[in-house]
């Protein structure tokens, strides 16, 4: 199965929330839908779920108009929503039946998922009596109870301790292995990196970055290298590079162990390595580690969204000046 979202636009009153969102995701793969708060992720998901209608654009499944009545979707909303005063099993059966599962199968599925998520002992308890983490697991069990083909998870890890997070990770990996389409929205980039082959970053209702995560990382790491000192004094190394190697590289950042540098135009990594080696030996600087920079998704997100926000602010200010 291949789900395609094509040029979706949505306005509420005079405000345009989505300005042409497009992406695609296939069975057995997970897509990371990323963006700051208010970027338009939830609106995109709600249009996908047919809760809102888009003003224009289309959603296709295997090349045909997406009919939500024919395909089961499991949706875990960011704002958790179940009945606090009803029994766990009772409401899971109810939600399964609303999605067209018969009562017997709904009961079996409910118990299977509660057991898989290790909360079956609470089946006959009122939801409000469970801890936040267990309520979260019940919510996930309710999302999967009807055995959906498309699973949309909005911030599934919030409120979970490391042990429960591991259980959830295993479940998500199983879903991907089973060939489900998984759309994963989260601010916890490490989880997105772990599950998602592709990502879409939305900002101010527009897709500002999308594609294969490995390719994106490679592109962002292009011409960038990391250098680490033996003595661990990153600041000293950073200042030394700025002082002695400014013709070869530009320091773009540093972390606890490494200095990140970008090659200047016309400089290749062998020339930089030679200059670094010579000058370091001369000045008594010992280099421990030298390799291609592989940015984290968090780095990419902060950089890309930061740039976009800067441009957006400038545009807004320019607009205000004109007025």
């Amino acid at each position: 199965m291949k789900l395609e979202v094509k040029d979706i636009r949505k306005s509420f009153g005079d405000k345009e929330i989505l300005k042409g969102i497009s992406f695609e995701v296939e069975s057995g793969k997970a897509l990371g839908l990323l963006g700051r708060n208010g970027a338009g992720k939830t609106t995109t998901i709600r249009i996908l779920m047919d809760v809102f209608h888009s003003n224009s654009g289309e959603i296709l499944l295997d090349g045909e108009a997406f009919d939500r009545k024919k395909v089961l979707i499991g949706y875990l909303p960011e704002e958790r929503g179940l009945y606090p005063k009803r029994k766990v099993l009772e409401q899971m059966i109810y939600l399964a039946r609303l999605r067209g599962v018969d009562k017997k199968k709904a009961t079996e599925n409910s118990m299977r998922w509660l057991k898989r998520l290790e909360v079956d002992e609470y089946a006959m308890k009122d939801l409000e009596t469970l801890s936040k983490g267990n309520q979260q697991k019940v919510q996930l069990a309710s999302t999967l109870v009807a055995d959906p083909e498309i699973v949309i998870l909005d911030e599934p890890f919030s409120g979970l301790d490391p042990v429960n997070s591991q259980i959830l990770k295993d479940v998500v990996n199983e879903l991907i292995e089973e060939g489900k389409i998984v759309i994963f929205s989260s601010h916890q980039m490490s989880y997105v990196e772990e599950f998602c082959r592709d990502i879409v970053i939305i900002n101010h209702g527009e897709v500002i970055l999308s594609g294969n995560l490995l390719d994106i990382k490679k592109e962002y790491g292009k011409n960038q290298l990391v250098v680490s000192p033996v003595d661990g004094d990153v600041v000293k190394l950073k200042n030394w590079i700025n002082d002695k190697l400014s013709d070869d590289v530009e320091v773009t950042g540093h972390n606890k162990t490494d200095v990140i540098v970008k090659l200047m135009d016309g400089v290749n990594r062998m020339k930089f390595f030679g200059d670094l080696s010579d000058k370091a030996t001369a000045d008594g600087i010992e280099i421990e580690h030298f390799e291609t920079y592989k940015p984290s998704l968090n780095d990419i997100f902060v950089e890309r969204v930061g740039e976009e926000d800067k441009e957006h602010e400038e545009t807004s200010e320019g607009g205000e000046d004109n007025e």
Binding site: M49, V51, E79, G81, L98
Partner: peptide
């Protein structure tokens, strides 16, 4: 109540 406890988010996507 369904709005305030957000169960409506799941319900309107199911029925």
């Amino acid at each position: 109540n369904e709005k305030s406890n957000r169960s409506i988010e799941v319900l309107v996507t199911s029925i």
